[in-house]
Amino acid sequence: MAIWNLGSINLDLVYTLSRFPAPGETLAADQVDRFLGGKGANMSVAAARAGATVHHIGAVGPDGAEMVQKLSDFGVDTAKVAAANSPTGHAVIYVVANKDSKEKGENQIVLFPGANQDLTSEHVENAMAGATVGDIFVTQNETNMQVEACRLAAAKGLRVCYAAAPFDAGAVAAVLPYLDFLILNQVEAEQLFEATGKRAEELGIKDVIVTLGGDGARHIDGSTGKVSTFDAFDVEVVDTTGAGDTFTGYVLAGLDAGQSMDVAIKMASRAAAVMVTRRGTADVIPTLAEAKSADLK
């Protein structure tokens, strides 16, 4: 089996700060790092590090060779990554590292989509030519062609998953008819309710996961109505960037390997807990061995 991910590929510039700047303020950073990022790339790397076969569908600009090489080095198939004329997507990320700050470990992100919005229907169709019934398809709201790709994946008999971030109610509504699986955080779930008048359990989707940050996660089985809750691990948070993407990639890898939803979520929670103790994005997503062996409480 395999995971097919229509997802963003970004260069992440991460600035470590003592606190977030106030409007109009100039604040010196303590450190800057370059990482592979983008919600799509993060999920692909997480799924690959969890042991899945992952095909990434995306685009980079003339400046994107470094990002594609990193994806490949992390075990992701990059044969379906197209070359675009626009600059490669990138993000500027502020992370507070001051242990005495109430904002410690939190982040602020400014995103430039770039080549992530240059995908074509022809590219998506060609990229998914090898997908087969029972494979998993996932996408997020950082590229174009989401609806077309979800429709194609559903027609091919794939399990269609949408990670609803960055959140846009219209984007979620457009892909809902094709979804088997929706993952969103608590704030996004409330935004979706405000836009549609429906709670997560009322959407008619087979599986919904609502992530709750430090409070864990909730799974809603749309077939039975059963709601299961999963506690988060208590760790020293360094950087929350990419933790949700790590969780999603691990859940999908577990399901692709034939695990039950409960087992997949528990391992994904371990991986996400390890992730928040590290500084960075795709480059520092834990391997399956690291997630399994981590001393977590």
Rank of each mutant, 00 (worst) to 15 (best):
126 N>F: 02
124 V>Q: 05
174 A>Y: 06
281 T>K: 00
128 M>E: 08
160 V>T: 11
183 I>T: 14
106 E>D: 13
16 T>S: 15
287 T>R: 07
44 S>M: 08
173 A>M: 10
68 V>F: 07
22 A>W: 02
54 V>Q: 00
114 G>P: 04
38 G>I: 06
281 T>P: 01
130 G>D: 14
257 A>L: 02
157 G>Q: 07
90 H>V: 01
23 P>E: 00
188 E>V: 09
101 S>W: 07
295 D>N: 13
231 D>L: 05
53 T>N: 08
257 A>R: 04
174 A>F: 07
277 T>C: 08
41 A>C: 08
165 A>Q: 10
73 D>H: 03
232 A>R: 03
179 L>C: 10
175 V>W: 06
58 G>W: 07
222 G>S: 09
160 V>Q: 08
158 L>M: 14
129 A>V: 11
86 S>Q: 15
154 A>C: 00
36 L>T: 08
174 A>G: 08
275 M>A: 12
111 L>M: 14
288 L>N: 02
292 K>F: 00
153 A>E: 08
277 T>P: 02
22 A>F: 10
85 N>W: 00
71 L>S: 02
47 A>P: 12
257 A>V: 02
261 M>V: 15
180 D>T: 12
61 G>L: 04
10 N>P: 02
202 E>L: 03
255 L>N: 09
133 V>K: 15
163 A>T: 14
116 N>Q: 03
167 F>L: 06
256 D>P: 00
110 V>G: 07
132 T>W: 00
155 A>I: 03
72 S>I: 01
167 F>T: 06
1 M>F: 00
227 V>Q: 14
194 E>H: 13
148 E>V: 13
281 T>S: 14
229 T>K: 12
147 V>Y: 12
75 G>P: 06
238 V>G: 01
72 S>E: 13
7 G>V: 02
227 V>S: 11
246 T>A: 05
195 A>P: 11
166 P>S: 10
29 A>R: 04
164 A>K: 06
121 S>F: 05
201 E>S: 15
84 A>F: 07
4 W>Y: 11
197 G>H: 10
222 G>A: 11
14 V>D: 00
275 M>K: 15
272 A>M: 01
202 E>G: 09
158 L>E: 07
242 G>L: 02
76 V>N: 11
214 G>K: 11
205 I>L: 04
222 G>R: 09
153 A>M: 04
101 S>L: 05
285 I>M: 08
190 E>T: 14
36 L>A: 14
225 G>R: 08
45 V>S: 09
241 T>V: 14
75 G>S: 03
229 T>Y: 00
91 A>S: 15
186 Q>F: 01
216 G>T: 12
74 F>G: 03
236 E>L: 02
